[in-house]
Design a protein around this nucleic acid. Structure first.
Lengths: 206, 206
DNA sequence: TCGTATAGATCTACAGTGTAGAGCGTGTCG
DNA sequence: CGACACGCTCTACACTGTAGATCTATACGA
């Protein structure tokens, strides 16, 4: 029994029963041990959750990085869809990525990968860190919104949502009603967003 | 004692002592009442937190919306900086915005405001919902990253962060070292990001 | 004026949380 | 053999959300 075994158990627990179900006691029983036995390995509940971030990053990082000889747009597309895959694999644990800064070496390597793509795109050095944050913030935010259902408010009952507001107070909703009632293909919406951002990056090239 | 008094107390509690300090007992003592007395008004802890989202939206919505006669870029700038102000006013409660979809009438009015700005910009109807989500997702994600410290990893100790990685595994970090060691002005970075997104929106006009 | 109904707040209790601190058993070295 | 150290367990404490029963004060009809 080691640290990664504990993190594995915790992450599987989160995936199966939700992040709220990740209690020290529950993780401990999974590992076959007493709650207090976890502490020398993970420090505290908070550090255990930090550990989950590392685990998740380490999990999808190789798939994104270990591809050589493709252009910077495809590399960034990979990073983007990787974030989304990660959110779907670990829907409830994914929130943790927004919580604390991930200072793991995996996290740094991932950032470096994006830096390199931006440099290859011809982005001036001074702009690279900003555009890295812009790009990854959007990807994480989109994925998080998706798994948390922030986007789906309209999908459930668009008409009800409009009706809730005072009549005439939401004119744009009325005008767009036809589009708002359609089901949204989140995959292709995300792709379109990423393409827009790639164009934005390409235009930052001087 | 009514529902909004309870939500007010809860929000102030979150601002002062953090979201984790918002327990039914703590809120109840603030209101001068017994924990169980809250339930008829807020339903449950979860619904109380949902209520905080509404309160926050209702708080900054007027400032953003009640301005007439300014062009769509300035209106979107207002929405953007409003999100960020909100994050600074309520640093820990802000996370809740990413959790559940806000289906309040305030939330819908805010979305409608952005829809209208995009329509005024000349964005084709079919693209408006997507670009609304793109824009607000980025704004929320940026503000959340900021208050949660996701960005600040490098600010604390950039050299340490680079050193943690195996030498040579983070070439782009080394090349950008000069810029990474500089303190970042988050205000102007956010402004630059928003300007980039406004340009992106302007280009979606056909 | 009295009795009763009703709504609101309270009290008690329960199962669950994170974790401090003491105690226990086993294996390794001198 | 004795002593130590390490890994684990056990117990305990203060805290969480909330179900269920109880109390209390106010309003209303007779």
């Amino acid at each position: 029994m080691n640290r990664t075994a504990i993190l594995d158990a915790a992450l599987r627990l989160a995936d199966e029963r939700g992040l709220a179900a990740v209690s020290m006691r529950a993780v401990a029983t999974r590992v076959g041990v007493t709650p207090m036995a976890l502490y020398p390995y993970v420090g505290s509940k908070g550090e255990l959750l930090d550990g989950l971030v590392d685990r998740m990053l380490g999990e999808y990082l190789p798939e994104s990085l270990m591809v050589a000889g493709i252009g910077w747009p495809d590399r960034l597309r990979r990073v983007a869809s990787g974030a989304r895959d990660m959110a779907r694999r670990h829907p409830t644990a994914f929130t943790l990525l927004f919580d604390r800064p991930a200072v793991t070496s995996d996290a740094v390597r991932l950032v470096d990968f994006v830096y390199q793509a931006l440099l290859d795109a011809g982005v001036p050095d001074a702009q690279v860190p900003r555009l890295e944050r812009l790009f990854t913030t959007f990807c994480l935010g989109y994925a998080l919104s998706e798994v948390n259902g922030r986007f789906s408010a309209g999908t459930v009952d668009p008409r009800g949502r409009r009706a809730q507001a005072a009549p005439g107070s939401v004119p744009a909703h009325l005008r767009l009603a036809a589009y708002l009632d359609e089901a949204v293909d989140w995959d292709s919406e995300f792709e379109a967003d990423v393409e827009d951002l790639l164009a934005l990056i390409a235009r930052a090239t001087v």
